[in-house]
Structure formats: C-alpha cells, structure tokens
Design a protein around this nucleic acid. Structure first.
Ligand SMILES: [Mn+2]
Ligand SMILES: [Mn+2]
Ligand SMILES: [Zn+2]
Ligand SMILES: [Zn+2]
Lengths: 151, 151
DNA sequence: AATGTATTGCAATTTTGTTGCAATAATATA
DNA sequence: TATATTATTGCAACAAAATTGCAATACATT
C-alpha cells in the first residue's frame, strides 16, 4: 500500500482531507486499466454520487495524481487516408495551431515493431504531440520579461 | 475538385444521395484543420441543423470518408507518472484488453526530434495503438473457419 | 414534370456535465 | 474523548451534448 501513502501525503501537503470517497476513487484508479469517466461513475454508483466523482477527478487532475490519455480535446475529425496521406500532428497549446507531421518511415517501423513485440496485429494508431510553437515561444519570452503590473 | 469527385463516387456506389448538406460538411472537412464536432456544428449553423451534422458525420465515418484522431474513447484516466512510469498503450479492439508499452528510448528520441523539426517545445505526447491481441487472433481464425449458418 | 423514397429539420428526450446549497464527515484543539 | 470548525459530500436544479421519432422536403429515377 505504498501508493496510498503517497496519495495521503499529497492530500495532506495541500491541506485537503483524506476521505472515504477520495480513497475509494483512488482505489478504482489503481485497480483498473485506464478508464473513462463513465466507467468510473459506473463503478462508483451506490458508493459515491456522480457529482463527487467528477469533483474528485477534477481535483486529482489538478494535483497531478491522474492524467488524461488523449488530452486537449475529446477527438477531432479529419478526412481519412483515402483523401489524405497517413500523418500525425503537433498542436500548440498556446494558440491552438496544428501542424501535420508527414509520414516518417522510421517512426512507422518502430510502431510496427511495438505491435509485434506484444503479439498484436495492428489496425491503427495515433500519435499526437503538444507543445509551444515558435511564435508562442517568442511571445512567452517577451511577456515574462515584462515587469509585473501592480494591481 | 478531385476530392469531391471521389466523395460523389463513394456516395453513388453506396446508393446514397448527393445532397447540398453532405457537400457542405465535406467542404468544411476539406478546408479546415482537424475539427471537433462542436466546431463543425458551429461552422454549419444557419446552413445545417445540428442533428444533420451528427448524422452526416456518423455516415462519413461508416463510409471511411473521415476518421477520428484519438479513436475508441473520448479519453481515459490513469494515474500519472508520479505513480506510473511514462508509457503508452496497445488496446485490443476485439476484447478491449489494454497492454502497457514500457518506455522505449528510441521512440521517445524520435518524438523529440519531430518536435525540434517543427520548432516546437514539446510538453506532452500520446501514442496509442489498436489491433487484435493474440487470443482474439486465434478466436477470429476459428470463427472464420466455421461454415455460415443459414438464417 | 411526376413519383417514390432517402434525407433533413424540428420537437421531444436522454445522457453527460455543472452549480448552489444544506447536511455530513473529517480534522484541530480543548 | 468530546466539541467546534469547516471542507466535503449528496441532492436538486440546471445547462450542454447527443439521440430518436416523425412529418416536411429534396433528390434521383422514370
Ligand atoms: Mn491531419
Ligand atoms: Mn497505462
Ligand atoms: Zn502557438
Ligand atoms: Zn483481444
């Protein structure tokens, strides 16, 4: 029960209370594969109210206790590979701009091998990168150089 | 307007009608970066009813005209890298089972380089693979060997 | 142009996520 | 250990996102 100890410490350090519901949700997170909120709500039902599940997950995300797999948007739609060649994306978390990464043989080969290693027959994959684009990097630098304005 | 021709052909081949709304949505998909449904609904408003946007997108997905970026689930939650080392996943579209892919230096390096090439400072990334696990491959083989049952 | 039918828009409904507030449970301290 | 303080929870009401049924409309076929 090493992980629960860390959870308790994080809550404590943040002057937050260690409650049954918070432990219950943490337990669900520990003992299952990555889950959707719907799944978590399902597994909590009778024990914990829907609303509390949402609130605890929000909190855990803020505290860095959990992370989303596929963050930023639920999903986006684009024309399929019939129309567009297979590619991936980098999106800027500053300005939202999205850049296509053209097909990279090395990357695709690597992915194939990961599939083989796990004895899977692969049918699809997604790779998405996030960060700050050149423009937003400059802007950030400029802003942080600016003296703080008194309120 | 080469792409529109292909769209028309696909619709035709499937005995589906070529309508103004369907062309309009296709046009939106062609002329924008990957979009969320909300964005598409927004851009369609006044021209097309929300409901029709949903229905056309469903159809286009079935026909393979569009694809989702981050498919399968909206997002799932798991414990963050404080608790678990950075890793990616393969999930089986047959049985839903998910397998963790342990950190691969080669892969992570490659991703770093993609960021540099685009002049991005990367903050996060997701790689998710889908396919059939060893078990499901066997099961499928067995099933397809079975003779079809008369209705 | 007239006909048959797939497609669309509208209204109603369901599902998912959020907010305000009073009841409850966790902590601090006496 | 009992009591006081206040963060957390559940409930009810609300808002937003997605789905469904059905009648009006637009497309394709003749
Ligand atoms: Mn793209
Ligand atoms: Mn994982
Ligand atoms: Zn940017
Ligand atoms: Zn499987």
């Amino acid at each position: 029960m090493k992980e629960e100890k860390l959870l308790r410490k994080i809550l404590e350090d943040n002057h937050l209370r260690i409650t049954k519901t918070r432990l219950f949700i943490f337990n669900l997170l520990q003992n299952n594969e990555p889950q959707s909120i719907a799944e978590l709500v399902d597994r909590s039902t009778t024990k914990v109210d829907r609303v509390s599940v949402y609130r605890i997950l929000d909190l855990y995300e803020k505290l860095g206790i959990i992370k989303r797999i596929n963050i930023g948007w639920k999903y986006k739609l684009e024309l399929s590979d019939i129309f567009l060649d297979h590619h991936h994306h980098i999106s800027c978390i500053g300005c939202g701009h999205m850049v296509a990464i053209k097909e990279e043989e090395e990357l695709e080969d690597l992915i194939d091998n990961l599939g083989k290693a796990a004895e899977f027959v692969l049918t699809s994959h997604q790779l998405e990168l996030q960060g700050y684009c050149a423009k937003c990097q400059k802007r950030q630098k400029k802003q942080s150089a600016q003296p703080l304005r008194a309120i």
